[in-house]
Each structure stands twice: as C-alpha cells, then as structure tokens.
Computed example of a mutant assay.
Amino acid sequence: MPRSRINGNFIDKTSSIVANILLQIIPTTSGEIRAFTYYKDGAI
C-alpha cells in the first residue's frame, strides 16, 4: 500500500487488504490504480 494507511478496526483492515490483493490480480492501468489509491485515502 504505497500511500494509504491501514487504520481502524478488523473489518477496515481486512477490506483494505482484500482490495489491495484484488488490485494486484485484476489487470488495471496505472491511472486506475492511482485513482483507486486517492479514493481509498479519502475514504479513510
């Protein structure tokens, strides 16, 4: 997780870890990865 922090309770940590794994598995462009990271930072 380059810029995001994993904070919060067990559910928050688990969902962040699952999202990172899916982001590595699903073919995405670098722009989509950056957009998702910004979105995740805002959600935290």
Rank of each mutant, 00 (worst) to 15 (best):
M1I: 01
M1H: 04
P2Y: 00
P2M: 02
P2K: 05
P2V: 00
P2H: 01
R3H: 07
R3Q: 04
R3F: 01
R3D: 05
R3C: 04
R3W: 06
S4H: 11
S4D: 11
S4G: 12
S4A: 15
R5F: 04
R5A: 04
R5D: 07
R5V: 05
N7R: 14
G8I: 03
G8Q: 04
G8H: 04
G8K: 05
N9K: 07
N9G: 02
N9L: 01
F10G: 05
F10P: 05
F10W: 15
I11D: 04
I11E: 06
I11T: 08
I11N: 03
D12P: 03
D12T: 02
D12K: 10
D12C: 01
D12S: 13
K13C: 01
T14W: 15
S15K: 13
S15Q: 09
S16Q: 14
S16L: 12
S16C: 14
I17A: 10
I17N: 10
I17G: 10
V18L: 09
V18F: 06
V18E: 03
A19E: 13
A19W: 08
N20A: 14
I21F: 12
I21W: 11
I21N: 07
L22M: 10
L22K: 12
L22F: 13
L22G: 05
L22I: 05
L22Y: 09
L23E: 07
L23M: 11
L23V: 08
Q24V: 02
I25T: 07
I25F: 01
I25Q: 08
I26W: 03
I26L: 09
I26D: 00
P27L: 00
P27Y: 00
T28A: 14
T28K: 14
T29Y: 07
T29C: 04
T29S: 15
T29Q: 08
S30H: 11
E32C: 05
E32R: 13
E32M: 09
E32L: 10
E32S: 12
E32A: 08
E32W: 09
I33T: 14
I33S: 15
I33L: 14
I33D: 15
I33E: 15
R34V: 08
R34I: 10
R34T: 09
R34N: 12
A35M: 00
F36K: 06
T37N: 09
T37F: 05
Y38N: 12
Y38F: 13
Y38S: 09
Y39G: 01
Y39R: 09
Y39A: 12
Y39Q: 05
Y39T: 02
K40I: 08
K40T: 13
K40F: 11
D41I: 08
D41M: 11
D41E: 11
D41T: 06
D41S: 09
G42L: 06
G42M: 02
A43F: 10
A43H: 02
A43R: 05
A43T: 03
I44E: 00
I44A: 01
I44P: 00
